[in-house]
Write a protein that binds this DNA or RNA. Sequence first.
DNA 1: CGGGAAATTGACATTAATCAAACTTAGTGG
DNA 2: CCACTAAGTTTGATTAATGTCAATTTCCCG
Lengths: 251, 251
Amino acid sequence: MGSNIEWLPTQVPCGSCPLRVRQEFRDFTEVELEFIKGSKRGELHVAKGGTILEEGAANQHLYTVLSGWGFRYKTLSDGRRQIVNYAMPGDLVGLQGTVMGEMQHSVEALSPMVLCIFERAKLFMLFEGFPQLSFDVTWIASREECMLDENLLAVGRRTAVEKVAYLMVFLLSRSIKTGLLGRSGVDIPITQQHVADTLGLSVVHTNRTIRKLVERKLISWTDGGCRILDAERLALIARWEDPIPRPRPFL
Amino acid sequence: MGSNIEWLPTQVPCGSCPLRVRQEFRDFTEVELEFIKGSKRGELHVAKGGTILEEGAANQHLYTVLSGWGFRYKTLSDGRRQIVNYAMPGDLVGLQGTVMGEMQHSVEALSPMVLCIFERAKLFMLFEGFPQLSFDVTWIASREECMLDENLLAVGRRTAVEKVAYLMVFLLSRSIKTGLLGRSGVDIPITQQHVADTLGLSVVHTNRTIRKLVERKLISWTDGGCRILDAERLALIARWEDPIPRPRPFL
DNA sequence: CGGGAAATTGACATTAATCAAACTTAGTGG
DNA sequence: CCACTAAGTTTGATTAATGTCAATTTCCCG
């Protein structure tokens, strides 16, 4: 088997970035685009299961997810693992390293991923020359914080069934917002172990809980991935407070 | 009883801010200082138990903690509460509101607090004119994210004893970094209910767990507050990975 | 066809939640 | 100054939720 992660020269130029075409992202000005272009150092292609960042390591780069799913996690010294969040197209990966010196968490690919590589050193230049972009970075960090608050509430205060229901709605919501929803839904590329490690449960109990939701036809669990069948009822079970975003219309 | 929260005109001018004298904060330039001064709208004095921000509300302001302790929390519709983090002197409060429109969490005072009030509308001006300050804001958001990751790991994957030990070391560490440590330690102004709501435990079980640590002389729990007696052993129990910061020397 | 990762199941152990009550302390008003 | 109250802590008894262990099964992939 070859390397499961490799650094390639830019193949998707920023000028025609598939993400920026989407409604959910704001338009860049010419200068901003130039700057971003100039900071891009290439692309990282990572196979499913590949490690993008590792806890404890220092890393010179900052990444943006172009495609694929990943997850961010921490571990205790005896191996217990906690997934703290997921990374989807458009997400920024590695910002914390800028602040903390070395990474406090690892990032792994759930499916084949492509990430844009940026020089971390350019970040301060971005703050000096591009107020709007700087604000965007803060915006992104703040949004991440908000998701972590939600996850903390789920892990700390919801029951097992509520937790699983919550995670499903959470991932569906994010998929919709990111424009990943096909006409037949999304395939969420996670295993039950991931669910367990996200929610602070054991795999066995996670399995039994998932089974219940499958029996009630709220989700389906097919070979290495799952699908949401009834988001509304799941949201009710999870006591999800926000409206589930509507999928944007396709042309 | 009078109002437990009131807005007063500036009494602590930014020029002689007691926080900026401390080693742990970087120096501002003259212009930066002027800008900050110009953005300050007054001070918020909050009694113990007072609510500074409320989930679901929109708020025009951004705050900086000048003194006192507070906590940030979310609730489920049936009242279950999860404390997501604590706020201590120097912390920024309310940044999320800028991004999300309305607050996704509440903030309450654990002890009498004083906060500086800033106009949120000025934030974008800050990004336009003060790259270093903008970077600082991002730095702060990123640090918060890092703490949330840690808390999530604790709530999701540690046992009850480990959890309590973790929280104690976490709060001690932050106290030390914030320069709150007197020569006899810190009095942490929380109740066992707060501990429970931070760690995702019931009060009863929290009490039993705390009792064990008290018996082992690792902490002491006195009327409405607690003290850390043996940080090293607590850190070991919690599998705390980082060195506990040394208290800075006093003159 | 064989190997391995993921999912599933049953039996059992353990942790933590719940319920209910008593106790302690600080603060309040008479 | 003292009874009274409320908030916080503590305890015991019981129940429910979740974890652990150990197989077994399923299914993908080479």
